Computed example of a mutant assay.
Amino acid sequence: MTRVLLIRHATTEATGTHLAGRAAGIGLDGQGRRQAQALAGRLAGLPIAAIYSSPLQRTLETAEPIARLLGRETIPCEDFLEIEFGEWTGRAIAGLEDDAAFRRFNAVRSRAPAAGGEYMLQAQARMVLGLEALRLRHPRQTVVVVGHGDPIKAAVAYYAGIPLDLFHRLEIDPASVSAIELGDDAVRILAVNDTGGAWA
């Protein structure tokens, strides 16, 4: 089986307050840089065959200390991009709370798109197809994928058999690791939202 370590990027100044989406130029803040360094230390010694990342700045910066410590290059992959939030990109979350489309997006993720953006189903399909491609490329190896909270949550929900409309029951914190093993005819979820290395 292929072991995939799904890592949410570390914190930025927008984390928890704004929908950064695919906006350029959003890097890690001071806390995020410390989180990324600590994360690299947690992964040291694991037999990681490859490191993949969403091509956005905050994910690449989270992957960089891991890649440096392990002596590997980070491979950008658009399959693991953040949701396309369209008109909501860069907006403050508090300023969207009275938007009926935003409320529906959060209430029924399986059927409601972001305004001018994509459906959660599209983001989930991207993630799962990307992970399945890694399963075929890296049989019996461990790989790292650095991505974004909601797409990681959607992938975990898919492999756990949880409907998208219930995926808010899962928590994916910044710099957390969710570990999944993917085989030809089996899936094992080893850890979800781990921030202390208990999955290793």
Rank of each mutant, 00 (worst) to 15 (best):
R3Q: 02
A67S: 09
F102W: 14
A198T: 07
R104G: 11
V146Y: 09
V146N: 10
D99R: 09
A49L: 02
A14R: 02
L170G: 03
I162N: 01
S176D: 02
L43A: 00
D150T: 13
S110V: 00
I83F: 12
G86M: 01
H138W: 09
L5P: 02
T62M: 05
I152Q: 00
R91T: 12
R109C: 06
V146W: 01
L46S: 12
D194S: 10
E181Y: 11
V4G: 03
Q122E: 07
A191C: 04
G41C: 06
A20W: 07
Q35V: 04
I189M: 11
Q35E: 10
R111C: 13
F102T: 13
A63M: 04
E64A: 04
F85W: 14
L164K: 00
Y158E: 03
E13S: 11
A198I: 01
A155Q: 03
L129S: 15
N106Q: 08
P151T: 08
S110M: 02
A125T: 01
D173A: 05
R104I: 05
E87D: 11
G95Y: 06
P113V: 12
D184H: 10
V143I: 03
G95T: 12
N106Y: 07
V108S: 12
Y159L: 10
G90T: 09
H168M: 09
L129R: 15
F167D: 11
R137E: 14
I152K: 01
G183E: 10
Q31R: 13
L60H: 10
D99F: 08
I93D: 03
S54L: 10
G147I: 04
R140S: 11
V144K: 04
P55C: 00
G30M: 04
A36V: 01
P55E: 14
L129H: 12
F167Y: 13
A14W: 15
R91Q: 07
L182M: 04
R137D: 05
A155F: 01
A10Y: 08
P55W: 15
A20R: 03
Y159K: 08
M127H: 04
L190E: 13
G95D: 12
A14M: 13
V108H: 15
T89P: 06
R8Q: 03
A198S: 00
A198H: 08
Q57T: 00
